[in-house]
Simulated scan of single mutants.
Amino acid sequence: MLHYHFTDADHWPDVLSCAEIRPTWQRGGSPLTVHLSKDPDPSGLRWKLRDRTVRIAVRVPHDEAHSWLEWSRPYLAPEERFSLIEPSSVNQWNGDPASWFIVERPIPMADWVYAEDLAAVQRLWP
């Protein structure tokens, strides 16, 4: 399945030079993770992340891309989870949590399909 990782233009050179999207997010004893979305539109992200203009399309095995809604239960306190989601609807602040996925490993360039800068409307990779 095609998923999308969003980053900002300042971090793109580091991602490209490492030739992988490194897992950097961790919460409540979870493994380090990479966040993905099945939605190519950044408006589905949490409002704090919508300014990330670099979109990297990736293909990861279905069994490695965990639904954020399911994955987050043991790692986030109920009140924190509740603050990030509004069940059964998309809201203007938190985007669409049903489209969020977690991968618990780096995503190497071999798994990338393309990268593009949405603000400059240009292909960055390949």
Rank of each mutant, 00 (worst) to 15 (best):
R81H: 02
I102H: 09
P126C: 04
I107E: 06
W112E: 08
W12F: 12
E104W: 03
D63Y: 03
L2R: 14
A115M: 06
K38E: 12
S43N: 13
C18D: 13
R22Y: 09
V54K: 10
S72Q: 09
W112H: 03
V34L: 06
H66F: 13
P87Y: 09
C18Y: 07
L118D: 10
W93C: 10
K48A: 09
E104I: 02
R22K: 12
P23F: 13
P31Q: 13
D10T: 07
Y114D: 13
M109I: 13
R105Y: 06
S99A: 12
A77E: 14
W68F: 13
V60M: 05
D41M: 02
P87A: 14
D117Y: 01
H62R: 11
E79F: 01
S99V: 07
I107Q: 05
W25Q: 00
S43P: 00
D111K: 09
L2S: 12
W25K: 01
W125I: 03
D51M: 07
H11E: 07
L16S: 06
R123L: 10
A115L: 07
L32V: 04
G29I: 10
S83H: 08
L84D: 11
D10E: 13
E20C: 14
K38S: 15
A65L: 09
R105K: 11
L49K: 06
G44D: 13
P87R: 09
S37R: 03
L84S: 05
D8C: 10
Q92G: 11
W12I: 08
R50D: 08
K48E: 10
E64K: 05
L32Y: 05
E86N: 10
A98Y: 10
E104Y: 03
E116Y: 07
R50M: 09
L84T: 00
A57H: 08
R105Q: 07
S83L: 08
L76H: 07
S99D: 11
F82V: 00
H35G: 11
K38W: 03
I107V: 15
A115T: 13
S89N: 01
Q122M: 12
L45N: 11
R52G: 05
G28T: 05
P61N: 14
V121E: 15
F82C: 00
R73E: 08
T53R: 14
L45D: 11
L76Y: 12
S89I: 04
R81L: 07
V15R: 02
K48C: 03
S67Y: 09
S37M: 03
D96V: 04
R52T: 12
V15A: 02
E64V: 01
S37Y: 02
W100R: 07
I85D: 02
H11M: 08
S83W: 05
R105C: 02
A119F: 15
A77K: 08
L69T: 01
R59H: 14
V58N: 01
T33Y: 01
K48S: 10
M1P: 14
A19V: 11
E80F: 12
T33M: 12
S43I: 08
D8Q: 03
D14K: 14
W125A: 05
R52Y: 05
L118V: 04
A119Q: 15
Y75D: 09
S43H: 07
P40M: 11
D8T: 02
I107A: 06
V90K: 08
E116S: 04
H35R: 14
Y4A: 05
E80L: 13
R46T: 11
K48M: 02
R55Q: 07
N94E: 04
L2W: 05
G44K: 06
V58M: 05
L45P: 01
S17M: 03
